[in-house]
């Protein structure tokens, strides 16, 4: 069997794929955080809990209503988006003019409450959610086996991320969004309903988290704790990429997933900390993040 730096190609590729899968989740979640931060000026600490909610909705849908994976992929993000809109209307909108810290504290509290509610109902052990039939099995690529579900997660995430980037950067709707992010007052004076856009942006941002949650359900176990396990790494990703940069959050998310995967191959002991080491270095050298702009 062939080797690279003394590591079998199979193992290397396997970890690389796993890294890309993790990176896909980082990318979707940090993209949502970036969009929300740009528009609402709020660091959405509830993002992990809403990601978990997406997975739980998929699980509940299947077990209580017999709603399958594909419908869940559509309905669970919609549900999470609606919950987000409710949160925005009832709580967040009072905080926009205050310091970031208040939004962070409120959403952190919300994260604890949401997580607590699900823990109370379902405990902390994971619930199994099986891979849809169409995506079981693996592709034989010759040099490795690629599980179909992993390929699907990467493909779906890249599609969603790219579509989001395209809408924001290349369409008239995106121009409204960028304008409202840059100068909300003037944008509103032109006759654009900025408060409505803010509400929908939050809804969309958390729906992305919900979508990621459904994608994660068959890949990981569905558990009330799955969000808090992931969100810390995602925040490190956001800090490295630079808060508020759309493309930056996508690229950094995928890149760090790969870095993590490779670290697992070459120096497994560091795989859990490598992201944070990179974060520390980036903060020292480029405090605004790799893609961020200094204010």
């Amino acid at each position: 069997m062939s080797e690279i730096f003394g590591v079998p190609v199979q193992a290397l590729m396997g970890q690389l794929m796993l890294g890309l899968v993790n990176g896909s989740f980082y990318a979707m979640l940090s993209l949502g955080l970036a969009v929300i931060f740009g528009m609402l000026n709020i660091i959405n600490f509830a993002h992990g809990a809403l990601y978990m909610m997406g997975a739980m909705f998929a699980w509940m849908g299947l077990n209580y209503f017999g709603i399958g994976y594909w419908w869940s992929l559509l309905l669970a993000p919609l549900g999470v988006g609606l919950v987000g809109i409710l949160i925005e209307r009832s709580m967040l909108r009072w905080l926009y003019k205050l310091d970031h810290l208040y939004g962070l504290l409120l959403t952190f509290g919300l994260a604890l409450i949401i997580e607590g509610l699900f823990r109370d109902q379902y405990g902390v052990s994971g619930q199994p959610y099986s891979i849809p039939e169409e995506l079981t099995g693996a592709f034989n690529l010759g040099f490795m086996f690629l599980p179909k579900y992993r390929a699907w997660v990467i493909l779906a995430s890249l599609t969603v991320c790219f579509a989001t980037w395209y809408v924001i950067e290349k369409t008239p709707l995106g121009a409204y969004l960028r304008a409202a992010t840059e100068n909300p007052q003037l944008t509103q004076a032109f006759g654009i309903n900025v408060p409505l856009m803010v509400m929908l942006t939050y809804g969309f941002g958390v729906a992305l988290a919900g979508f990621a949650g459904v994608l994660a359900a068959p890949a990981l176990q569905v558990s009330p704790l799955m969000g808090s396990n992931l969100i810390i790494v995602v925040f490190a990703v956001v800090v490295i990429g630079g808060m508020g940069s759309i493309l930056g959050s996508i690229v950094t998310g995928l890149g760090l997933g790969i870095v993590e995967g490779l670290t697992k191959v070459f120096y497994p002991e560091a795989s859990a900390t490598v992201v944070f080491v990179i974060m520390a270095i980036v903060l020292l050298l480029r405090p605004a993040g790799l893609f961020g702009r200094e204010k």
Binding site: A179, E182, N183, L186, F190, G191
Partner: peptide, 23 residues
């Protein structure tokens, strides 16, 4: 609210010009 007033046919050119840098 501001966004409805514009629709009565008002155009605004602010002092700092308000050109969006990201557009």
């Amino acid at each position: 609210p501001a966004h409805r007033i514009a629709h009565l046919g008002v155009g605004y050119c602010p002092e700092e010009r308000g050109i969006y840098a990201s557009l």
